[in-house]
């Protein structure tokens, strides 16, 4: 049995200890916003926040998150400034990678509230978008950064400590 905080709630799952967090979320907790892309930590589609930091859930055995805090796209609520910027900027094309991209950005803005293009590119270089929405992603990150309430950014920062 593994117990962890998921989107603010305590959950316990009884699965093989080596089951990746991704499949625990998708198959056992029915949270399908976190995507399977490569199964090898190469594409970032499965990105979630672990204690506020972006991480790859497809290669992370669930046993390793015992007692930790996980945020998935479902936990952002839908009107998070990053999500708003994504919707307004029509960033998503097919959209499959975008939940992972968004969580990557939330993680980045938690550490660096006003990233420049280079910092954005570095932070998101592990998140493949096969539709190539990269330029719209960068544009939307700047929009979101300008709208993040300072306290929210601080809050995320505290979570990472």
């Amino acid at each position: 049995m593994t117990t962890f905080q998921l989107n603010g709630q305590s959950v316990s799952v009884e699965v093989a200890a080596d089951t990746p967090l991704l499949w625990v979320l998708r198959d056992h907790l029915q949270l399908t916003g976190t995507k399977f892309g490569c199964g090898a930590g190469l594409c970032g589609a499965c990105t979630v926040l672990i204690d506020g930091q972006a991480g790859r859930s497809c290669t992370l055995p669930v046993v390793e998150i015992e007692g930790r805090s996980v945020t998935t796209i479902e936990g952002l609520g839908g009107d998070h400034p990053v999500q708003q910027a994504w919707v307004e900027g029509s960033v998503a094309q097919c959209g499959y990678c975008q939940t992972g991209q968004i969580l990557g950005v939330v993680s980045l803005l938690g550490q660096n509230p006003h990233p420049d293009d280079a910092a954005i590119k570095t932070a998101l270089s592990g998140n493949i978008c096969r539709c190539g929405a990269y330029q719209d992603i960068i544009r939307a990150v700047h929009v979101a950064a300008g709208r993040m309430p300072p306290q929210a950014a601080e809050h995320d920062k505290e979570e990472t400590v």
Partner: peptide, 21 residues
């Protein structure tokens, strides 16, 4: 205009084949 599928695709609510339950 913002794409009308943007919200679904920015919130994890979009159902791809992989997400059929």
């Amino acid at each position: 205009a913002p794409r009308i599928d943007g919200y679904l695709k920015s919130t994890g609510k979009a159902i791809f084949g992989m997400d059929v339950s």
